[in-house]
């Protein structure tokens, strides 16, 4: 069993590094912690960075999870190898680029690039965004799956994720008390489906809705409230078509023994209890439920 402690960072390739930087700082509200000729490191909380854009293909997307012991990297590598996943041990240079001590990389069954990292860098200084978006931190990702049942088994069987709820066949998975850290959305591709940052209050969600709308940032879903996690949310489109989400008030699951996951419908009501309708293809056209309608 691979024990994921928390989500660590996302690395995204982009053909327009300047455009991505402008979006991430002026619109999304992240803080630049570091930049090089080919990459920009962005901070959203106490960690040194939680998002990195680098010059490259926009399809080159990676998400990293933290493990607590170096030995767990080795155990994970042999377990993944046994299951037929090709595991790559990161070089010292690569580790330096990621601000971690050590890491391994592999692909999940869908082909998503996953990294497991040990001792990712924290920052001595607190996060102070480019604008007052109220961000409290990078929190979760939506991950594409080409086979929801298979990938749910991978994340819950090989790793320590637990199903918190399902919307149709889309499983919302937790690795700690937070309702979900990984959300698996059935689709026809590999990659990161959305990137979530938590904001302090519902007011922050609404302020950003007006701020970003005035600047013609495409709103693709919300403002709304998820019946699953009870979080208030806003989804909007960033560079290279990536969907970003702000949310506030996500539910925490304290009692592992008593909690039972629930089945929600794969329709707008399953995604929003206020009546917002998603313009996101993975929330509209996929994840046909196999049990309930």
């Amino acid at each position: 069993m691979i024990t994921l402690q928390s989500i660590s960072y996302v690395r995204l390739g982009t053909a327009d590094l300047d455009g991505a930087t402008k979006f991430a700082t002026e619109y999304l509200g992240l803080e630049i912690s570091n930049r090089s000729k080919d990459s920009i490191y962005l901070k959203s909380d106490r960690r040194e960075h939680t998002l990195c854009y680098f010059r490259g293909s926009p399809t080159d997307q990676t998400v990293a999870f933290e493990v607590s012991e170096l030995s767990e990297l080795e155990l994970a590598a042999s377990e993944l190898d046994r299951l037929g996943h090709r595991v790559r041990l990161g070089s010292a240079t690569e580790a330096e680029l990621r601000r971690v001590r050590s890491f391994i990389g592999f692909q999940d069954p869908t082909g998503n690039h996953i990294e497991l990292v040990w001792r990712p860098a924290y920052s001595g200084q607190r996060y102070h965004g480019e604008r007052d978006a109220g961000i409290t931190g990078f929190s979760h990702i939506g991950l594409c799956t080409t086979d929801a049942a298979r990938d749910e088994i991978f994340w819950t069987g090989v790793c320590n994720a637990r199903v918190s709820d399902r919307i149709g066949d889309a499983a919302l998975l937790r690795v700690d008390q937070v309702h979900h850290t990984i959300a698996l959305f059935p689709t026809d591709r590999a990659g990161i489906q959305h990137i979530n940052h938590q904001v302090a209050t519902g007011d922050d969600v609404m302020r950003s809705f007006n701020f970003l709308s005035e600047r013609q940032v495409p709103m693709v879903f919300g403002p709304g409230r998820h019946p699953t996690s009870s979080a208030r949310f806003l989804y909007f489109q960033g560079p290279d078509g990536m969907i970003f989400e702000y949310s506030s008030g996500v539910r925490e699951i304290a009692d592992e023994l008593l909690y039972r996951e629930r089945q929600f419908p794969f329709d707008p009501k399953g995604f929003c209890e206020w009546g917002a309708k998603p313009q996101i293809r993975e929330f509209r056209d996929w994840a046909r439920p196999h049990v309930l309608d």
Partner: peptide, 14 residues
């Protein structure tokens, strides 16, 4: 509460 307020917002749109 806020949920009813926002739900009404979408209802008014409809």
């Amino acid at each position: 509460d806020v949920n009813l307020l926002m739900r009404n917002w979408y209802t008014l749109r409809d």
